[in-house]
Design a binder for these strands. Sequence first.
DNA 1: GCAAAACCTTGATCTCGATCAAGGCGACTC
DNA 2: GAGTCGCCTTGATCGAGATCAAGGTTTTGC
Lengths: 212, 212
Amino acid sequence: MCGALNARQLAELAKASSRHEVSAGTILHDDGTYSNLLSGVVKLTRDLSDGRQQIVGFHFAPDFLGRPFEAKRPIKAEALTNVALCSFPRTIIDRMTDEVPELGRLLLNRALNELDEARDWMAALGRKTASEKVASFLLMFARNIDPSKHPADPISFDLPLTRGEIADFLGLTIETVSREFSRLRVDGAIRITNKRHISLASMAQFEERCGD
Amino acid sequence: MCGALNARQLAELAKASSRHEVSAGTILHDDGTYSNLLSGVVKLTRDLSDGRQQIVGFHFAPDFLGRPFEAKRPIKAEALTNVALCSFPRTIIDRMTDEVPELGRLLLNRALNELDEARDWMAALGRKTASEKVASFLLMFARNIDPSKHPADPISFDLPLTRGEIADFLGLTIETVSREFSRLRVDGAIRITNKRHISLASMAQFEERCGD
DNA sequence: GCAAAACCTTGATCTCGATCAAGGCGACTC
DNA sequence: GAGTCGCCTTGATCGAGATCAAGGTTTTGC
């Protein structure tokens, strides 16, 4: 994100930034800073008053966390893995967006991408079957957890979510998620080791299972 | 949205703007302009390849339509009612955001609000029951179609959507939407005239039916 | 190492909302 | 006015996924 800045601005930013790490399970309260997510995965959740929960998004490195203006609805951010952050005081970024329009455009673009993703998941939540939802989820995770553009085909990764969290993302129950994982395993589409480590046989085959 | 501009900029904007109207059912193709929605309602849809459809949002006056940068996923915008628009060439707005940081911040804020709304609906789609979904939908529509901040309590309005479109928004079927409408009518929570004209007895009561 | 706790899987059964089916009600055309 | 078309409602039945239930497995704490 720093490509838009000149040397003086970069130096100023570097001086005001602070790197820190938090462990899995930490709630990331909105403390008025912006942060670059250097490594790890963060979940965003929206809760109904009676305890029902919906995960509304994830952040992977090198996403940008934090937002100007208040959100009307409280959205909670929680580290799913150990997470490394590089944080900046909001005041600095806000001033720099005034000086460097390019930076403001970057933030806007980022917000619009998040909006597109949220709408993709609206379509999944509203119109996909349980097995399409699970396939879409695994594909999304595989794509995001591997930073390379064209990942090798048998790709494998650790899922930093419980079955319950996957259910809360996909609008399903724990049991349905578990059954769909078993079905994918029996079909030979995935291999599961230690419950959480997943290998996808073929990205292309998963795209077909997604239903879109 | 024009509060941030000075007299010269306002004049420039006015000269480049063009007002026009389109009738209900028109697809609003992305023609590289930004528009203020002066009146009417627009739906945004995301389609799966086999014909399943999800409505991912609505725009009401005085929302702002159009976006910089390409969307990865094609999202279609369609006028639900006759619609009046005031359009500006993208180039003008993009240049003004460079000159007036306040304007860029406005666009960012708008995008973040849309993101919050999309996430609210993710929670509804994933975790609410059919009757909570229908109640949430009616309340959202009542709030947006009436521009006043504190609408009178027995509020009534025309729904510019078919039952099928409501179903495509809420992740339900036509029949379920119809049954929930009937149930609300029998319960005395709404009055229905001519299928499309709805009166809500009490906003407060509807909030309780929403489940959040 | 052992016990407890958290998480996961699988089976049996149930239920909410989908699907199938039939008819009603306007609005438009001729 | 009769016929057609699009939209809506209501009833009957079905089924995908929820719920209930019982173990199994992994992790954690002592």
